[in-house]
């Protein structure tokens, strides 16, 4: 008996009228994967500097998240504390071991900071984004001990820090950045594109925030 794999592949080839061994077809596929051509890139994101940051801000807010800017990494803990205070939330946060966090003056705030994954009991999490995409106000998160993926989904309130220099205009530029960090054709285990807080429209098409993931998403942009 032939395997399911062989059967499916040979049925595809029969339907397409090919053998699978054609050099030209192989070449077309290899080239496509190798060159990864960009298609149509919306003009909207093709701006830089302040304009790009403004677009990012507007799109983040359009996705029902909140956003603030700080001048340097040193100001991040205070901005986190202020957000929590503003929403009457306990001054506790959970975060990963991202070295950018380790360098920040958490002790200057009253925040109680713990480190590691979330097991579902944390109210607030702070993550550092790998980048962001201004086109749609999307945060680009990569998995790893620096920023465990569970922090993106289990806590009620998610605070994400992103450096202004890591913002891109479009998804394609974000992928270029991923390739520079991980190598062509390689990916971290998980890349999360996050655009706004969790929501559902499943009950009478009414938009409700905080379905299974965070009810609030707050973005802190550093060094704009």
């Amino acid at each position: 008996m032939t395997s399911a794999r062989d059967d499916i592949l040979s049925n595809i080839r029969r339907s397409l009228g090919v053998t699978g061994a054609e050099r030209t077809r192989q070449g077309i596929v290899d080239e496509r994967i190798d060159r990864a051509p960009r298609g149509v890139i919306p003009k909207r994101g093709q701006v830089s500097g302040r304009e790009r940051l403004d677009l990012f801000r507007a799109q983040v807010e359009g996705a029902l998240a909140t956003i603030t800017e700080v001048a340097s990494p040193d100001e991040v803990p205070a901005a986190v504390a202020e957000f929590l205070r503003g929403h009457n939330l306990p001054a506790t946060i959970r975060r990963g071991d991202d070295p950018r966090f380790a360098a920040m003056p958490w002790a200057e705030t009253a925040l109680e900071v713990s480190q590691g994954v979330s097991e579902g009991r944390d109210l607030n999490a702070v993550s550092h984004a790998f980048g962001g995409v201004a086109e749609t106000g999307t945060l680009v998160m990569v998995s790893g001990p620096e920023n465990p993926s569970t922090l993106n989904f289990l806590p009620d309130n998610h605070i994400v820090v992103v450096e202004a220099k890591d913002l891109q205009g479009d998804y394609e530029s974000a992928w270029a950045k991923v390739r520079r960090a991980y190598g062509k054709g390689e990916m971290p285990r998980t890349v999360n594109f996050i655009t706004g807080p969790s929501r559902s429209g499943d009950i009478e098409q009414t938009l409700l925030l905080g379905a299974h993931g965070p009810r609030r998403l707050h973005v802190i942009v550093v060094g704009g």
Partner: peptide, 11 residues
Amino acid sequence: QELSVYTTFST
């Protein structure tokens, strides 16, 4: 929506 809230790439 401009983009869905969560687009997740798993490898």
